[in-house]
Design a protein around this nucleic acid. Sequence first.
DNA 1: ATGCAAAAAGCAACATAGTTGCAAAATATT
DNA 2: AATATTTTGCAACTATGTTGCTTTTTGCAT
Lengths: 148, 148
Amino acid sequence: MPHKHHTQDIETRIASLLKRSDLSVTESRRKILHLFLEQPGALAHGDIEKKAGEKFDRVTVYRTLQAFVEKGIIHTIPTADNSIRYALCKDDCAGGHHHDHHIHFVCDSCGNTYCLDDVVTPEIKLPKGYTAAHVEVVVEGVCKNCKG
Amino acid sequence: MPHKHHTQDIETRIASLLKRSDLSVTESRRKILHLFLEQPGALAHGDIEKKAGEKFDRVTVYRTLQAFVEKGIIHTIPTADNSIRYALCKDDCAGGHHHDHHIHFVCDSCGNTYCLDDVVTPEIKLPKGYTAAHVEVVVEGVCKNCKG
DNA sequence: ATGCAAAAAGCAACATAGTTGCAAAATATT
DNA sequence: AATATTTTGCAACTATGTTGCTTTTTGCAT
């Protein structure tokens, strides 16, 4: 057993993530962060309200997500169906500086949205006069869990 | 004067576009299509409600946009701010078969969203197990009208 | 541990966005 | 011009998001 910090208690991980972000650790923040950590996909506001049950006020969910985005714990993923999705920033991203260079994948079959952290956004050659500050790529198709 | 069909009356153009799409030409459809034709950018539902003034019921705007999307007259553009934008499909797209291979550009300065019809979406190499059906690229930056 | 200041949660009320069913009006068809 | 069909507009409703304020919880210092 070389190292065991990946066995680290999830609650401890959550608490330290919050503290590192200058957020006081409250029940709603722990709970919502838990939801993100226990599954691989992205979550929309509605998903969280549902999963959290009657536990929190809607306003609390809004404010919590907003705080997480501001602190770089989660990031938003654009959609064409008027429902922002949020996903955990990966370790090297949550550190403070957003990388934001990965693409997003929406599965037509299961409906989940995943960050493909290993797939880097391509260079886009724009027409004369246009300057790119940021490139967002969303690929839609069938994910590896749904294929076959 | 070789050809003059590009001088064609805009109302005639609108009417034929609607007929070609099996839509009866009504005042709201003509008016809303007019809004799209007279400017280069994309429009959100809210923009249309404002630009059309008190002219139409909100419901009519929803239904009109929905019909236009179904018929391939306009297409949606994903955003990260919970506001679907709609843009005219270009000539070769409106013909019936969506091309959908162009990218979208959101200007940080003027806020407009444009279709860059000449910029084709790149090939994205996905991890094993993932299959891509469609790729959506949104570039954010400064457009050619706002630069300098 | 206890008390206190600061932050967050919860509540209520509100504002905006989107949907549905139906009657009235406009459009297409003959 | 008359009628069948489609679309519009209205009303009522659901869902989504926001704001101000009071109560509760958290973090901190004693």
